[in-house]
Structures are given as C-alpha cells and as structure tokens.
Amino acid sequence: MAAAGTQALPSTSRRRPSPRRRPLRTRLGRRGGPYLLILPSLLAIAAVLAYPVYELFKLSFQKFGLAQIIHESNDKLGKPAPWVGLANFREAFKDPQFWATLQRTVIFTAVNVGATLVLGTAIAVLMGRLAKPIRLALTAVLIFAWAMPQLVSLTIWNWMFDQEFGVVNYILTKLHFGHFLHHNWYTSPWQGFMVATFIVVWGAIPFIAITMHAALTQVPEELLEAARVDGASPLQVFRRVMLPILRPILIILTSLSVIWDFQVFTQVFVLRDNRPEPWYYLMSIFSFQQSFKVHDFGYGSALSVVTLLILLIVSVSYIRQMIKIGEAQ
C-alpha cells in the first residue's frame, strides 16, 4: 500500500510537464516545425524523381543529338540545344515505328496482365483448397520465385531456352510436341515474345497469387455459407459475393500489373543480348535505343514522356482506390 502510494505521488507531480519544455513543444507543433520532418522526404522526391522527369520534359522539347553532346564537352564545337516545340512529338506521331511499338506494347501488356491475374488467382484459389503442409510448401516455392533477382531468373530462362543446351527444347521434343532440338526461339518475334511473356508472367504470378490468397482468406465464411444456403450456385457465389468484396484489391493488383508490365524493359532487352532488333522494341526499349544508341535524346525523351502520360491515366484508378482505403482506415 505504502509502496503504491509513493509510486503514485511522483507520477502525479510529473503530470504537468515542466513549464520550460512546454512552450518549445508548442512552438514546434504550431509553427510548422514538424513540417521539417516531411521536408527531407519531399526534397528527396524532388531531387531524385522530379528532377529527372523535368529533364525528360525539357529534352522532349529540344533537339538534342550528337552536335549538342559535343558542344557540352567543348564550347567551341557543335551547337547548343535549340528549342523545337512539339517537333519531337510530331515526329513520333508520323513515325510508323512509333505506332507499331505502341501497339506492340499495349498488346504485350494486355496479354501479360491478363495471364498474370487469371493464373495468379487460379493458384490462389488452389492454395485455399490444399491440405496445410502442401499449401505451405507451395507458398514457400512461390516466395522463392518472387525473391529471385530479375536478372538471375532471366539468365536461367535464357539458358533454358538456349538453342543448343536448352532444356526446354529437350523436354518439348521428348514430350513429342514436335522437333525442337536446336530450335531458335528468337527468329520469329511471336515466339520471342512468347518466351518474354512466359518469363514476365512467371515472375509476376507469386506476388498476385500470395496476395490474392491472403485476400480470399479474409472473405468471411459466413457470407459464402449464407449465399449457399439461399441456393446460390458456385458461379453466383463467386460473382455476387466474392467479386464485390475482392473488388478493391483486384483494382489495386490490376493497376499495379498494368503499370509494371507497360514498362517492361529488362526481360526483352536481355533476352535479345542487349541488342534488340526493331521488331522487339517496346516503348521503354524504343526510347532507350533512340537516346543511347541513335543519340537522339530529344526524340527518345518524347517517347518516354508519352509513356509516362499514358501511365498517369492508368494510375488514376489505383490512386483513387488507395486514397479511399486510406480514408477508411
């Protein structure tokens, strides 16, 4: 009793903060002092992300080629970059290569996103119906695939689709799918993109499957039970009960997948040994080649700007969903 009393006393006396400290804290609290806490992150965003975007936009309105690169290294040679307004964009819209690349990128994105979401969800549903030890094993395997560095998995797939040593050719021949020994997968762009799609989808499925599985386990069982008792068919249960509940997470996953797949670069670039042919160009690769290989930085930047604007439109739905969730919390 006595001990409790003595303990209680100092704490009551401390309840009032010392008068010296209080004004300091209010000053910090009221006069934007804490804004100092978010300032570094805003500065970092400005310096590391906003500035390159600014450079990108600036270059897209300039003619910036070899002459300008030389001029930068020596004032007396070459020419400074002239402003050309929308000329780079006009050039793009007249360039058949641009339209072909854009179309290719859109189709590639659609196929990848569709395949990833359908297969990922199917695996998530499968995971929910497995006995626990098998489910855990499958999850572990998916995590392994998810964690593998993109370049490493690419190296391995590159090796497995190799013309001479490739295990894929070997297996396909053994399974009597046809004569695949010494088959070169990249002479036809269709087959080359099939390989790229396979690798992209392979790398993207684990994230979708594990997230969807987590989301599915959060759907209350009673709701499904109630629907079944009321005589709903499995398809109706899925469409009328599951889908509305899963809508937010589906929107997030779809938008993220579109954003990621629209900017695929490494998979195709590395599969083509860092020297992709024009018929293997995606928007990101086209921009890279125009800038760093053709040394037309102005045109290359314009291509990137178009890509960013398209992505901005796509991400509106994602951002709206995230803000909605943030407000609900």
């Binding site: 695929v264 490494t266 890279f288 991400s315």
Partner: peptide
Amino acid sequence: VLITQMMQPASMLVGIYRQ
C-alpha cells in the same frame, strides 16, 4: 508519395542519365 510509386526507372532513364 503514391504518384512516385507509379514511377519506374524504365521510362525515365534518359532524364536520370542526363541528371
């Protein structure tokens, strides 16, 4: 913060390089 999450290096390489 969310908008920056959209950004991927792949479509900003030229800007990053120039910076």
